[in-house]
Amino acid sequence: MRIIDFHAHLDERWLHKPIPDASHMVAAMDRLGVAQTCVYTMMGFYAETPRNNDLLLERSQRHPDRLIPFVTVDPKEGPAAVDELERCLERPEFRGIKFHPWLQAFAPSMLEETMVAILKVAARTDTPVLFHDGTPPYSTTFQIADLARWVPEAKVFLGHAGLADYVDPAARLLRDVPNLYGCYCGSRPGDLVHLIETAGADKITFGSDFDPGSWELLAERLDNTIEAGLSPEDLEAVLWRNAERTLRPSSR
């Protein structure tokens, strides 16, 4: 079955820890049968966001048919963040937007005006916006779901669909907020069954959170999905169909 990984990281390092280059990521994908992977920065969450967007694009374009870059911006910069988003989205290779409010040090409600502007750009360009969720104080599942309500035209993703302690709230919010979607990334098979029973398989997309140095994590996250015992139709929706439908349309 075809697989699209909606949540992974491609960078040269995370903090002090070096990360192997993109060829290792593609090798892991080949090993485990993953066709395409959506990749996000790591260091761009901390500093030099425009430069890191450019670097991510460059790294991902060494494997343009396999790696799909997501742009990030620093909303604490206000209008400059919206400008940076527009700049990046002029490149058709960027097919999603990623935020990690916990690491980027903002609560969306602190920056409502900028976040609304960003979400409106996302809606206009049909680009999904994925947020880390499941972690207080800036990335609770409730915070991200609330933000989705601000711009109903935008496609907002819970990047971990509740992760550890917010899975049940995530399931109910995914059911109740039409433009809220979930990336099943890190929680466990019993959680996935609940997410799908509550919100429907069309709301859930597979993600691994792996980077080029951790092929085992990709394997584990696939195990998490397979072992949930989903119907073939639901499994197909989670593993690729929803991702393909939701990604910003490609010009390729």
């Binding site: 466990r188 098979p189 019993g190 394997a219 584990e220 072992e227």
Partner: peptide
């Protein structure tokens, strides 16, 4: 029943 034996055992074996 949140996780599964197969998931944990394969993670350890790897």
């Amino acid at each position: 029943p949140r996780n599964r034996y197969a998931v944990v055992l394969k993670a350890i074996e790897r």
